[in-house]
């Protein structure tokens, strides 16, 4: 377990290329059988990252019909099971930015405002983004969101002229200017400090696991090695780094043997050996 003193960039919404663990490759595994669809991670994400009203970096989709997500017309309602009574099934697909290994968004950004850090986290520079939304077009998963109007926060920013004065969630995630793109950044300030992203810490079902793919002993590496995981729509060639343990395949027991070894009672700090630079 390691905690590093975090040095925030002078401009909190500027570039942050430097990673504390440049040799790491962060990834997330989500156990769909353990997700209860409570939206805790989404709400925690929204509050930690000061996401404006109407913008969500993290959503819980209700899987309808086709668990692979290949059928675009299969759009049931939220929390709506599929099948005929009594053979009903209900599965959730928690989604946030997949931090693809081959991200289409960074390729199309005309000004390189969105870029990939050495440790694989895809970032957005709110100081440079010109708001053309080409990255939203390029993302096959619609994970990016745009500040269409002046961002509205609850509670509201007391001093709208001074965006840095806002301290509700993470102080390094102040309200954004209007007209820029934002998305999940794996809570990179927390990760740089040796902490888990906030959604990992709050998940009551312990459905989310975060770790370093370059560390063979990390929980995500072990899960990838020992269970069958899928990615959402890998056919786009993006190599998403958010993996899913599909529902109903292993009876929900896939993780019971591995998980406790790694569990930190608070799930606050990164575990395993973090490769240092």
């Amino acid at each position: 377990m390691k905690t590093t003193e975090l040095t925030y960039p002078a401009n909190p919404y500027g570039r942050h290329d430097e990673a504390t663990y440049p040799k790491a490759k962060w990834a997330m595994v989500i156990d769909q059988d353990r997700c209860i669809g409570c939206w805790s991670c989404s709400v925690a994400c929204k509050s930690n990252n000061n996401e404006p009203l109407g913008l969500w970096w993290n959503r819980i989709l209700t899987v309808a019909e086709d668990p692979t997500g290949l059928d675009v017309t299969a759009t049931g309602g939220i929390d709506e099971p599929v099948g005929e009574y009594p053979d009903l099934a209900l599965a959730y697909l928690p989604v946030n930015c997949f931090h693809c290994d081959n991200p289409p968004c960074t390729q199309v950004c005309p000004v390189a405002a969105t870029y990939q850090r050495e440790d694989g986290i895809v970032m957005v520079d709110w100081d440079r983004c010109i708001g053309c939304r080409y990255c939203l077009i390029a993302c096959p998963y619609n994970m990016r969101v745009f500040n269409w109007s002046v961002p509205e926060q609850v509670p509201a920013n007391a001093d709208p002229a001074n965006l840095d004065a806002y301290h509700v969630g993470d102080w390094a995630k102040p309200p954004r200017p209007k007209g820029v793109v934002e998305k999940c950044d794996f809570c990179y300030q927390r990760v740089d400090q040796g902490m888990q992203p906030f959604c990992i810490e709050v998940c009551p079902g312990r459905a989310r696991i975060f770790g370093d793919l370059n560390d063979p002993n990390s929980e995500v590496s072990q899960l990838l090695a020992h269970t069958s995981v899928t990615q959402v729509r890998p056919d786009f060639g993006t190599e998403p780094k958010v993996y899913y343990i599909p529902p109903k395949q292993t009876g929900g027991g896939a993780r019971t043997e591995i998980a406790p070894l790694f569990e930190d009672p608070e799930r606050r700090y990164l575990s395993g050996t973090v490769v240092e630079s």
Partner: peptide, 17 residues
Amino acid sequence: LRYPNLGYAPGISLGTP
């Protein structure tokens, strides 16, 4: 732009409250 690739409920957050 009519249909997103992941069309599951509740869908995409529009960006307005």
